[in-house]
Design a protein around this nucleic acid. Sequence first.
DNA 1: TTATTCTCTATCAAATAAGTTGAGAATATG
DNA 2: CATATTCTCAACTTATTTGATAGAGAATAA
Lengths: 146, 146
Amino acid sequence: MLSQKTRYAIRAMQDLADRYGQGPVQLAEIAERQNIPPKFLTVILSELTRFGLVDSQRGRDGGYWLAIAPVDISYGDLIRIMRGSLALVPCASRFAHEKCKNCVAEGDCRTRALMLEVRDRTAELLDAVKLSDPIALVPADHETSE
Amino acid sequence: MLSQKTRYAIRAMQDLADRYGQGPVQLAEIAERQNIPPKFLTVILSELTRFGLVDSQRGRDGGYWLAIAPVDISYGDLIRIMRGSLALVPCASRFAHEKCKNCVAEGDCRTRALMLEVRDRTAELLDAVKLSDPIALVPADHETSE
DNA sequence: TTATTCTCTATCAAATAAGTTGAGAATATG
DNA sequence: CATATTCTCAACTTATTTGATAGAGAATAA
């Protein structure tokens, strides 16, 4: 599961993407629109700023804006930045690879082999969708097949 | 990420699948082969037994065995059983659907729309692979493209 | 020079995860 | 029947992570 913090970060970035090129957006605005605890959002936006995804300015009429065009930021990037990896197990992470604790040898681990595939498929999808892309909303009562 | 417990459960089930039809397998054996703390494994196997995936017998020469043929147990099933869902956010879960805390309306949530797709793709893959399937192991130093 | 807005480190509480303890119940064997 | 063996189960402990807040500080514009 994505942490609450990661979900907040994604929504905050969407909010900024929607206002790209329109000058600084204030934290309080984002917090209200996106229903995020303002104090917590300071932590998140500072993190994103330190990471170079967002620029900021203090003082009156200050705020935040994307440092990178929305078309160059994928959902995969966001999740990797916020939670370190797209993978379901540490040993299947591409960029944050780490041995799983108490596992069998990596080369013998079927779970790992399978999770590498899952990671690849997930990355394929999430790296292809950018913050600038329109996303078809799904009604709340939607039920998929099966 | 999958919890350690879920990973243990998967490996334990693989161990049992490999010995399907060969009589009871003892907990201590599984624990040793799969490098799982034995006491913790009792919790996991009891859970799987209660869930109906595994049968057990006590006493001398007792042990555990799959209650269902390996060909009828998918990795998707296992993960759903152990962690409740395949989804990355509660609101994108098919069987354990739940509103995300502090989110926007579900019908307006782009994250949800995207995560529904991720869930579907993940399910497609993980439901298609069964415990009986051979899985091509991947060498430990493997690096994928990109 | 003051109000505004972001920055950053520390801290806290609650939830979750990982693992252990220990008493108990079923089973096979002699 | 007695005993060793093996699973069962609830309670508990500890460590880690998560979600969130507090509060002092620094930049900026008016």
